[in-house]
Amino acid sequence: MEGINKLPDEVVLYIISLLPLKDAVRTSVLSTRWRYLYASIPTLEFDFLATPVESHGGFMDFIDRLLIFRDRSPVDKFRLSCFYSQVVDPLHLQRWICAVIRFGIREIQIRFEDSEDVLLPSDLFTCTTLVTLKLNFHSESGFQVPAKVCLPSLKLFWRA
């Protein structure tokens, strides 16, 4: 542990970013210097499709805290997969998307099973840094696209 603590934060952050998010968060107990490093990893992936709904507990609060404690480091990728109607509060989803947009998001992937009308913030459709947008909503209604759409960096849009 002594040797790794001598490494610069950028190197430690890179090492932590190679871990699954759950394990990256666990590194916060290793030292006070590492306490919030996990909150700066560039890839935020949350996959709750394989876990029972009862075990999701406070995952919305966890994502909120993760974004609150984050420094101004960019977010390259935000991926969320879950059962929308049972797990996600639409206001939380809008807040998360707006937060990652402020962090210069490059890729957003959202997959909802059993979704109702999904309310996406209009900021998503005017994000200047977004390169990849993948939306996978298993529903009849899907989502609404606002009248004003301006995604100058978008290279890949995929909707299923």
Rank of each mutant, 00 (worst) to 15 (best):
I16G: 00
L67K: 00
L18E: 02
I101P: 02
E140N: 11
E10C: 07
L135M: 04
P146A: 07
L13H: 00
L154S: 02
A147F: 13
C127K: 01
L21R: 10
S17F: 07
S153H: 10
F78H: 11
L37M: 10
L119A: 13
V131Y: 02
M1K: 12
L44M: 03
F157Q: 02
A50Q: 12
L30A: 01
A50I: 07
L13R: 04
T51P: 11
F69C: 08
V53K: 13
L154W: 08
V100G: 05
L124T: 00
V25Q: 15
D64N: 09
A160D: 15
S55M: 15
L151C: 13
K6W: 01
L154G: 00
L49R: 13
H56V: 14
E45K: 12
L151M: 08
V131L: 06
D114G: 09
P20M: 12
L154V: 03
T128N: 10
P42D: 01
V75W: 13
H56Y: 07
A24Y: 04
G104L: 02
T128K: 15
L151T: 07
T43S: 11
V12W: 01
D9I: 05
Y84E: 11
D47I: 06
S28E: 05
A24F: 03
F48K: 07
C98T: 12
K77M: 09
H138S: 15
K22V: 05
D61G: 09
T32Y: 10
V25E: 03
S28L: 02
A99W: 01
R102D: 02
V88W: 06
L13Y: 00
L19W: 05
P90W: 11
T132W: 11
H138T: 12
V118Q: 04
V88T: 04
G58A: 14
F143V: 04
L93M: 07
F78Q: 14
K6L: 12
I63N: 02
R33D: 07
L120P: 02
K22I: 09
P152F: 13
P146F: 09
F69M: 11
K155S: 08
G3L: 08
L30C: 02
F48P: 00
E54R: 15
V25W: 00
D23Y: 04
Y38N: 03
D117Q: 15
R35P: 03
I110R: 03
L19R: 05
R65W: 12
F62R: 00
N136E: 14
C150Q: 04
L124N: 04
S139V: 04
F69E: 00
E2R: 03
A160Q: 13
Q94Y: 13
R106P: 12
I108T: 08
E140L: 13
G57D: 14
R159A: 14
L133F: 06
L44A: 03
F83E: 14
D117R: 15
S85W: 05
P152H: 07
T128C: 10
K134R: 09
A50L: 14
L130A: 01
Y38S: 00
L19Y: 04
V53N: 10
T32D: 12
P74N: 12
V53D: 13
F83G: 05
V100N: 08
Q109Y: 15
C127F: 12
L156V: 10
Y84H: 05
